[in-house]
Design a protein around this nucleic acid. Sequence first.
DNA 1: TGTATCGAATACATTCGTGTATTGGATACG
DNA 2: CGTATCCAATACACGAATGTATTCGATACA
Lengths: 224, 224
Amino acid sequence: MTTQPVDVEPAVESARRQKTRERLMDAAFDVFAEQGVHAASIEAVTERAGFTRGAFYSNFASKEELFFALAERENGVRLDRLQEGIDIIFPTLATPVESLDIEAVAEIVDRFMLLQPNDRHWCIVESEFRTLALRSPEVAARYIDYETRIDTRLARLLEEAVGTVGLRFTIDSLQATRIITTLAQQATYDAILAGPDVATDDLARANARRVLPAVLLGLTEPVA
Amino acid sequence: MTTQPVDVEPAVESARRQKTRERLMDAAFDVFAEQGVHAASIEAVTERAGFTRGAFYSNFASKEELFFALAERENGVRLDRLQEGIDIIFPTLATPVESLDIEAVAEIVDRFMLLQPNDRHWCIVESEFRTLALRSPEVAARYIDYETRIDTRLARLLEEAVGTVGLRFTIDSLQATRIITTLAQQATYDAILAGPDVATDDLARANARRVLPAVLLGLTEPVA
DNA sequence: TGTATCGAATACATTCGTGTATTGGATACG
DNA sequence: CGTATCCAATACACGAATGTATTCGATACA
């Protein structure tokens, strides 16, 4: 028996391959957002990316796999952004606020909304992601995983942020965070639903600023 | 010139026709929930209803029309249920609560969750409805319309409900209502996402009971 | 420069859904 | 009864998307 040359796949994918995958994900991001994951044909995605279907089939096993790769990537981007956020939010907040009024809280909210510019496309894709998750336990597992990673990190940030203005949560901070993110998301939805003519990001922030401070105040108390 | 027999369509559709439409909507409800509006073929819907595609094409112009007819119907059902809710919620609540603590508020929350048993199917279809609305201004218009009708009525109910336990909202009651419904919906999503093995409705209520009272209290104050 | 390999393009067969045009059977009505 | 009407069933033609099997070209490497 001779030593058999094992078909080991290269530890690191060729640069070319990786680039193609990225371009396909970029295209998929747009097309999925515009047409929906199911409605989007593989051809539409590859065409948008400047390829033919051949490129897709030699890089992904299925549309599902492409979708999850995309979700994974985008979630990573947002996790990273959150990490950077630490450096952005706190230096300025640290200047202690005088009165613990609603304005101080509104300021926090505003920072966080700026930190997560929930670009239209991601918001739509994520919304579909959740809908798909409601239908399929497998999808749900991934959805929950992503959401948990984000919210866990965000919870630490938020806890610290309210602390710097002299407040603390009256309920579990992860709970509180999930309430906040849910409402922030809703604010973004409302902005998108308002139509394509409005400045979505600005409106989303305005919506959030109108709703969230009251809630945040309701969920916190002055630290003794 | 003789009087021409005008081809006027019967003011009231034939009973047979109406029945077929209802059965198609019933089937569509299930199939849309299970597979998604786009993934669901017309054939799948008609087959589930015990028809062939001929029945569909002689009753609806498109899948979209069927979807909107379904949404209209289901929204009506839920509006009616809300109306009845008045008689269900208040008689018992009216017995004034002694202490304005979180328990009294939790009781209100529980009543409202029972009032809107957001059955799994409707919850999923509504979630997809919203996702579709994010993509299309036409769909958005309908979505907002439905949502507004529900929330407006609900706001009146809620305002009265918190009043009966000696509270009043510190922000606009419609605003507050939308916060509550958003979080209640989230509680239901979480329950569905938990998997098919759990009692969705019970878990949804438990989730809501854990989250909503704190928020509701945060948005109200004792009436002077 | 020649050759091997990798990855995208292409060609093809097949499946699936759609919509229309027509038929057939039931019900209402004279 | 017989006939007209209505509505769902059926048959058919078409287009769209899929996945595979193969080819072609570029890059890497001897």
